[in-house]
Nucleic acid binder design. Structure first.
Lengths: 219, 219
DNA sequence: CCTACCGATCGGTAGG
DNA sequence: CCTACCGATCGGTAGG
């Protein structure tokens, strides 16, 4: 804050204290998020996260109040990326099936990017405090509704045959969420390749349709 | 309280002690497995599992040596059901794509059945002891290999266009595994309906193919 | 199968 | 940002 005048001196000093704080906080979230994905929230101790960042555990508590709060931010991050993917899809097209494909592909690309390491998708809600659970559950439901509406729109536009949007969304969201559990940056496939392959799988799958058309309790 | 036991005494008296022991052990596995699925392994205490069975915690340790062992058996159970599904598929056909469809549908039906409550699929391996991890990892790899071979067979038989079996299997197995996290016996869909819908999604999805043919590092 | 209890792990804090 | 430490939870056991 009052240190801004030191700005000129060293390379690292070009960051304001605020920027530095946020950089470190993000580094903490990334490191923790990766560990949570790989080993699970409860199998990851704060000591391990600290060691990965070359500091001791108490240092982490300068950036985050509790371990649960870290997990909460990782969840929020996952939804922020989803919102970003939605934004991209909405700007690109008005056709339901097109929006669906772009949203899915963009979301996969974001989840497999460096930024995406913060996102945690497979941890049970019970690991969060009740207050945080409510917030995450609402965002989940909103997103789920968005996807089901998109599927319904694609049906209405005759892009895909009648089917139960709930089953459809459950199907491809399961596939998508699971990427975070096996995706490896060093792996044979880039995020973009995975995104395109999944986009095709999903689109072709839905075009085949399912025998049970949507009924009143489906949306 | 003590009247309940009288009732049980007659009903269970026809069972040998061994059968009784196994029934109770299975009840324990089912109750624990369901809780693990819903809330996660570490968010489920032995006290809770015991309470759900109307006994106290120490009673459970007559049937299982440790909590980790319960989780291990839940994992084993998941693979036992997979083997059973494979058996069904192998008996029904010799065509790759047919075996694939039957295996998937059968597995989903088993996972959504009463028996399937024992199966745990989304818990990180780190929750298990190192010895158990090795065993589960081997079974996972064997099953993964089986599925990739099946996809490759379907490609060779021209049932589906050339594609990377690793991506393909990752895709539909992700979708399948996730069913256990949202499936509700009281829900709108029966296990068979889900199985058939997923079978179609997958088959249609793979028939569309992916642009990248398999390369040397894909199997 | 229960009452009573132990002991390790680990999240979080005090104080500097 | 570190050293030292506390306290709650919870898996597991003793003994009956």
């Amino acid at each position: 804050m009052s240190r801004k005048k030191d700005k000129a001196r060293w390379a690292t000093a070009i960051m304001s204290p605020d920027e530095l704080f946020n950089m470190k906080k993000m580094a903490l979230l990334r490191e923790a998020g990766q560990a949570f994905r790989r080993k699970g929230f409860h199998n990851t101790s704060m000591d391990e996260v600290a060691a990965a960042l070359n500091v001791t555990k108490p240092a982490l508590y300068y950036y985050m109040k509790t371990k649960q709060e870290i997990l909460f931010e990782c969840h929020q991050f996952a939804f922020d990326l989803a919102d970003q993917a939605k934004q991209t899809a909405w700007e690109a097209s008005e056709i339901g099936i097109e929006r669906l494909r772009i949203l899915l592909e963009k979301y996969i690309e974001l989840l497999t990017s460096t930024l995406g390491s913060c996102a945690v998708l497979l941890e049970p809600l019970s690991s969060l405090s009740p207050g945080h659970q409510k917030i995450v559950l609402k965002r989940f439901r909103d997103f789920d509704r968005l996807m089901k509406d998109l599927v319904q729109q694609a049906i209405d536009e005759k892009s895909i045959p009648p089917q139960d949007p709930r089953l459809t969304v459950g199907f491809f969201m399961g596939a998508l969420l699971h990427i975070t559990s096996w995706y490896d940056v060093e792996g044979a496939r880039t995020g973009k390749e995975i995104a395109q392959a999944y986009g095709r799988f999903v689109l072709n799958g839905l075009k085949g349709g399912s025998p049970e058309p949507a009924n009143s309790s489906d949306i």
